[in-house]
Design a protein around this nucleic acid. Structure first.
Lengths: 154, 154
DNA sequence: ATCTATATAGTATTTATTATTATATAATAA
DNA sequence: TTATTATATAATAATAAATACTATATAGAT
């Protein structure tokens, strides 16, 4: 991750009155540098390489905090677990319904944002106060599609 | 729900080799007629009014089967539980990050579909085989926004 | 009406996540 | 730099949603 991105998150954390711990910084780095949208358990396994004593609870607490600061995005998969994305810029996800693999879908072109906000936000039937939105595609990744014929017929 | 919609689901179930049980039909009706996007537990509570002996397992199995047939849609909330939507037509959801309330966002205008399929599908970096897509808005419902100042500041 | 495979009910188990609590440590000020 | 205090952490226990197991019941086919 870039220094400026790290600094941005760090200053937000300080501004909100949270303190900076090595574990916290490492969790931020892991999530921000990963392209695989890891789950809490995967972050936990990764951080144990550098901080073997870290607890899963700490990972959960930190990811949850980062999410509340809108510095990571939560993604829910078919497998009923939450995955985390350190890229909070406007983009979508394609999620494999079989293995849960998540890939990014780049959609941050200006016309998308414009379309989204003009056409869609106005369609809320109740007065929701939206602070984020996302697009998700569901299907099968190429591996599951070709590897398991039974799955691809569903 | 309309008879034709029920017949459509029933014939798909038969075609796929599943059998028709009263519990199954009732679960279909409950999910299709509900506007509140119930969880499995809520469907379970509802079906017990007419079939008191039904098990939660049966509810899960049936909802999961209907989902694999793409006759109900799964919605994942912040609270980490799965909710079900019997309306599988193209529309989005606004989800309250505090209480989990889900409302529909009508987006099934032709230009949306066109935009979505032209602009977005082509942006997949891997060969995913998409069979569904959705739009989700995250924020606070009006009740949570006005009722709990602490929550709305996050 | 009988047969067979699937569905169900009831229970046990698993898995992800959250709560609790005592200790350790970051941030702050003397 | 040290002392203080509040927050963070580690370790463990608890919770809740979903799944697995198994014996029985029943839908659909013959």
């Amino acid at each position: 991750m870039t220094d400026s991105r790290l600094n941005q998150i760090v200053s937000k954390i300080k501004k909100m009155g949270y303190s900076l711990t090595p574990q916290r910084v490492e969790i931020i780095k892991i999530v921000s540098e990963s392209k695989s949208h890891p789950s809490a358990a995967e972050v936990y396994n990764k951080i144990k390489e550098s901080y073997p004593m870290v607890s899963l609870n700490t990972v959960y607490k930190n990811l949850s905090m980062l999410s509340s600061l809108h510095e990571v995005k939560e993604i829910k998969t078919m497998q009923n677990s939450v995955h985390y994305d350190g890229d909070v810029s406007l983009h979508g996800h394609a999620i494999c319904e079989n293995c849960g693999k998540i890939i990014d879908v780049q959609i941050n072109e200006p016309d998308f944002k414009k379309f989204f906000e003009n056409k869609i936000k106005g369609r809320l039937t109740e007065n929701y106060h939206i602070n984020n939105y996302g697009v998700e595609f569901y299907g099968l990744c190429d591996y599951c599609y070709t590897a398991d014929p039974a799955v691809s017929e569903t």
